[in-house]
Amino acid sequence: MTVPPVPRLHVLIPCAGSGSRAGGDGPKQYRRIAGRPMVAHTLDAFRALPGRFATLALVVSADDSEAAAQLPGFPAAGEQLLRVGGPTRAATVHAGLQALCQAGAGLQDWVLVHDAARCLITPAQVEALIAACERDAVGGLLAHPLADTLKIASAEGRVTDTLARTDKWLAQTPQMFRIGLLLDALDRSGDAVTDEAGAVEALGLEPLLVAASAQNFKVTYAEDFALAEAVLLARRNPGTP
């Protein structure tokens, strides 16, 4: 009797976007926060779990000229720099998954897809997601319960409705699914989805929500950089007033 292989864990970080909403010169993932490129902090959280992942992959565009210069020492053993990024997040993730499979990843292996711009993710949050999802039939994602009142706006910028917030969550990353399931979901959804869970939901499945921290926000706008730096510096110097 053949024993099926134990599913491995892979990390895929899409890093091919331009970050236009953040302003500034160049892609936001390489802008410096607390003295280092943003994506370097993101990589740190996964590198802090040595031996946990079969692959730690960064997916950049084919013409990316920053990664090698900004990330000395990457890729190291067990890491990959994949120059297959596409014009959208979904295309980048799909191409990255295909590249992982070509390098030996199995369709039943798990992949944790994480935003390069969520540079405040912690190893403990990553481990919490894995513990919650590794025996789940579908997989899931880190998320945070919505604390603010949610309004619907008209084209003129006026409130047209207020939504109940009791069952609303803010989706975060990592999002953890089987590689085969996610490839199938993205094949069917195309570029219409903005996160992996949305593609899986379109298959009629219900990803698991794993409560995380409001600090795991995505650095998107210019003012987010100062907030992210303040959090990183506070973590580096705990107890400093």
Rank of each mutant, 00 (worst) to 15 (best):
A185H: 02
L208H: 09
V210T: 06
G204N: 05
S189I: 11
S189Q: 10
A197M: 13
G239S: 14
D184Q: 15
L186V: 08
V193H: 03
N216D: 10
R188F: 10
G239D: 14
E206T: 09
A192D: 14
L183R: 13
L181F: 04
A212P: 03
L232D: 11
V219E: 01
E206M: 05
D195S: 05
L181S: 09
N237K: 06
D191I: 05
F225Q: 12
A212V: 00
L233I: 08
P174Y: 08
L205N: 03
A228V: 13
L232P: 02
T194A: 10
G198S: 09
L233H: 03
D191K: 11
A212W: 09
D224P: 08
T173C: 07
E229L: 04
A222N: 06
A212G: 10
G239I: 02
A192I: 12
A212Q: 02
W169N: 04
T173H: 01
G204A: 05
A185V: 09
A222H: 12
R235S: 06
E229W: 07
N216C: 13
D191C: 11
L183K: 05
Q215K: 12
M176H: 00
V200A: 00
T194H: 15
R178G: 04
I179S: 07
Q172N: 07
V210D: 08
S189D: 03
V231E: 05
V193P: 00
G190T: 09
D224C: 06
V193Y: 03
R188W: 06
V200E: 00
I179F: 04
R178D: 08
A171I: 00
P238N: 07
T194Y: 15
L170N: 08
G204D: 08
A185M: 06
L205M: 14
S189V: 05
D184H: 13
P238Q: 05
A185F: 02
L170I: 12
R236Q: 15
A185E: 10
E201H: 14
E196F: 07
R178P: 06
P174V: 04
S213R: 13
A192L: 15
L205S: 02
P207W: 03
Q175G: 03
E223R: 07
T220C: 10
E229Q: 15
